[in-house]
Design a protein around this nucleic acid. Structure first.
Length: 528
DNA sequence: TGTACCTGGT
């Protein structure tokens, strides 16, 4: 009998199969026998087809759970969408006088990292130091990662420097710590110093540049990786596609799509989401829709829907965005706080104030708390529509200090709707709030320029310069035949600049002609 | 039985 169960469990590779074995174990009274209960718990909590809640229910039935049961459950929760449960299980473990070992701490550190819980992470590390496990390589690596993830890269570095022995995971965790902290020069230094670089090192470097906003450098590193590094994986491509979408580089993005197919990389949900995001942001709405619709709804998650809705919203395709949301609701997929931001941004572009209010109120109804971004978005909707009084009222009512983006939205509305007295007040407040940001001074100075108060406009610019803030010139990018061209205002550097300006004149005339035409059509239809 | 890289926009 015992041998029979052992063979069944060893060959078990599916969830339904495992449930059948569980039923057999229960009816035969063997389920609480250690080797089987551990094997079962470990499969239920950590395998590819795991169900952590099922594993937890099974765990609760154990009369005398052992260290390895706790470890399996903590590991499962660390990778679940509820990592905070790890700490509850850990507390229970300590209450039951079960002593954690070298397999317990890496996953607790991971949970603290995923929750960005600096306090919990620090307590756990203190416990490790007292436990005599402090020299374990895996534990050290996990805590370097934890410190990097909670924004304490200096502590990560201290741990890294004091380690008796390092491996490539130590270096990758340190690299990732600098990537997350936004310190690209130290990130690069670690990358250049590390004894060996694998696909994780390269991917972390690329993603570090993406997070820093240096998308061109991210692409350059990817090219270097193709030339001299390991083969890229699906995670690498998620970051690379993110760079393409920010650059608006459709041809490069499509080439990446082709690369994914040629290299037969798994089209994971994250990768599909990145492709949808890239296509829609680069204006290839149809390609995005094809990729979005070709996967069955069961295999989607809210992030994929957000990418589609947000992308359509960015292009002002308001009704299409709201249509996709309606589909999402029909399928019973729960929106998250990002979904609401995407929906409200769609409303802002389409001038749908009442709908935006509806979504804003739904956030609370869905059991979420509106964040400053939601207030900023709602203020933007109201301000764009010229409902400045309501916008001001919302700013006053918001439960947190208004962020620069909230006031920025209000300022734009004031300028567009010629409320210059209010614009001056908001503009001044923005400069106070964000004194290192060049755009805030420019915004206020532009308000003064519009009302011809040149002295004030000049003194605002001077205030900016005296505080050492430099105005960085705005620019835009255009991709032609796979090559990105960057232009700033009055740019004369491009070799084909004469033809480019000539084409601009032609396009300008074309727009004028089109708008005259639409006015004429409006006039004709008003007669009917 | 363990550690590292990824999917909204500002």
């Amino acid at each position: 009998m015992v041998e029979c169960f052992r063979a069944l469990l060893d060959n078990c590779n599916s969830w339904s199969h495992l449930k059948q074995i569980h039923a057999l174990l229960t009816t035969s009274g063997l389920s609480k026998t250690d080797p089987f209960s551990w094997k079962f718990l470990s499969f239920a909590a950590t395998s590819a087809s795991s169900d952590i809640n099922y594993a937890h229910r099974f765990f609760l039935q154990l009369s005398n759970p052992q260290l390895f049961h706790y470890n399996a459950l903590i590991r499962g929760f660390a990778n679940s969408n509820n990592p905070a449960k790890c700490f509850l299980i850990f507390a229970e473990m300590l209450l039951n006088a079960v002593v954690p070992d070298y397999l317990t701490y890496p996953f607790l550190a991971k949970a603290a990292a995923r929750l960005s819980d600096r306090k919990a992470g620090g307590c756990l590390h203190a416990r490790v130091l007292r436990s005599g496990l402090a020299s374990d390589l895996f534990i050290c690596n996990s805590f370097i990662h934890m410190y990097g993830s909670v924004g304490e890269v200096a502590s990560a570095r201290k741990l890294f420097d004091e380690m008796p022995m390092r491996n490539f995971v130590s270096w990758n965790s340190m690299l990732d710590g600098y990537a997350k902290s936004g310190d690209v020069s130290l990130m690069r230094q670690v990358f250049d110093q590390m004894p060996e670089r694998d696909v994780v090192s390269w991917s972390a470097l690329i993603d570090g540049y993406v997070k820093d906003g240096d998308h061109k450098e991210a692409m350059a590193v990817f090219e270097a990786m193709k030339a001299e590094g390991p083969k890229a994986n699906d995670v690498t491509m998620v970051s690379v596609l993110c760079a393409c979408s920010h650059l608006g580089a459709l041809e490069q993005g499509s080439a990446m799509h082709q690369y994914i197919a040629e290299e037969r990389l798994p089209l994971t949900l994250a990768l599909r989401t990145s492709l949808v995001d890239m296509y829609v942001k680069c204006g290839a709405v149809n390609e995005a829709l094809v990729l979005f619709h070709e996967v069955s709804a069961r295999k989607t998650d809210v992030l994929l829907w957000n990418a589609m809705i947000g992308g359509l919203a960015t292009h002002g395709l308001t009704s299409e965005a709201l249509g996709i949301y309606a589909e999402m609701q029909d399928l019973g997929i729960r929106p998250d706080e990002i979904t609401y931001l995407c929906l409200m941004s769609a409303c802002a572009h389409g001038g749908l104030v009442d709908e935006a209010w509806g979504y804003f109120k739904s956030i609370t109804r869905d059991g979420m708390v509106p964040k400053s971004e939601h207030y900023a978005c709602m203020v933007d909707v109201l301000a764009r529509a010229g409902r400045l009084e309501e916008a001001c009222q919302l700013v006053c009512e918001m439960p947190m200090e208004p962020t620069p983006s909230t006031l920025g939205a209000l300022l734009n509305g004031c300028i567009n709707h010629r409320e210059f007295d209010l614009a001056e007040i908001v503009g001044k407040r923005l400069v106070e709030l964000d004194p290192a940001h060049d755009g805030r001074y420019v915004g206020l100075s532009n308000v003064y320029a519009v009302v011809r108060r040149w002295d004030k406009a000049r003194s605002t610019r001077e205030a900016m310069e005296s505080r050492g803030v430099r105005k960085s010139p705005g620019y835009s990018c255009v991709e032609v035949y796979g090559v990105l061209h960057r232009f700033t205002a009055h740019d004369k550097a491009h070799p084909e600049i004469e033809e480019i300006y000539m084409m601009l004149v032609v396009i300008g005339e074309e727009i004028k002609f089109k708008s005259d035409d639409s006015e004429r059509q409006d006039f004709v239809s008003s007669l009917n």
